[in-house]
Design a protein around this nucleic acid. Structure first.
Lengths: 152, 152
DNA sequence: TATTGTTATACTCTATAACTATA
DNA sequence: TATAGTTATAGAGTATAACAATA
């Protein structure tokens, strides 16, 4: 097994148990750093998270959105009300079952979310440019594995 | 530049901009997954985070701890009071300047923190065992780069 | 009668401002 | 007079329980 240059810290992660520990700390720290690059802080993390879920699903009932965000329905009512007042989401009654409330992103909401994403990507891009090609290659190969772990 | 097996998703991240985007999503998701493996939820994330900071620094003044945790002093007073009631930390007056309050982990606090860490590592270890040797090697090489990004 | 979402109420956590003690 | 920490008070945000509308 050969190591590329700059592996002094990685060699400490020789055993699998050590790899788990090192990887966990690195991922948590980087996540924290990325989170701090939030847009303007006028929106809470929960509000942004709910919008992110909506971005992937089109129309979702308020209850399903609450479940997806691991929040109780009354809390989601409040979150959606706030986002609706800002024009970032829209409530619409379900035509088939009028007890249901469908929520979806407005164009303004989608744009704000995209701007947020671009901003975080911009920071990460700047950092990536400072790395060596080998280091970037290491990240490229690991990205798909990290995704796999996150889904499991 | 050669690619190892199982790179179908990674090839999507050909350009650096795409790498940033893919990496950000993967890291945030995995961090969220790791966070959900918290011990018993009797402690909040802020309390655990404060304890983690203490673990690395021995004795710290309450003000420095508040600054490190990006929290105001009154909030840290409350957090420390709560942790002290549980026997996880101890307040001690600074012998030199009696205005200062030094905080440090008790043995029980250190043990609880370690148990927490072990639990998260255990989950990640189980997942790592399911990966191929190539995938683990990719993570091993990337871990040090992720750490570097997190510190920047 | 069951289900979806909302309103009412209480609790937790945080912050700012005022206060106490030490320097 | 300045500084470290605590106490007092108010403002978000969340949850459970009670309620209204619809099925």
């Amino acid at each position: 097994m050969t190591y590329a240059k700059g592996m002094t810290a990685a060699t400490k992660a020789r055993s699998q148990a050590e790899l788990a520990s090192v990887l966990r700390v690195a991922v948590m720290r980087l996540a924290r750093r990325l989170r701090s690059e939030r847009e303007d802080d006028s929106l809470t993390l929960n509000q942004l998270s709910a919008m992110g879920t909506l971005a992937g699903h089109g129309q979702v009932t308020l209850g399903d959105l609450a479940a997806a965000e691991m929040v109780q329905p009354p809390s989601m009512t409040r979150i959606v009300t706030n986002l609706e007042e800002r024009g970032l989401v829209i409530r619409e009654p379900d035509p088939g079952d009028r007890r249901l409330v469908l929520v979806r992103l407005t164009d303004a909401g989608a744009e704000l979310l995209a701007a947020n994403r671009r901003r975080r990507d911009a920071w990460l891009n700047r950092q990536l440019r400072e790395l060596t090609p080998d280091e970037r290659e290491a990240l490229r190969r690991a990205a798909v594995v990290l995704e796999k772990l996150a889904r499991s």
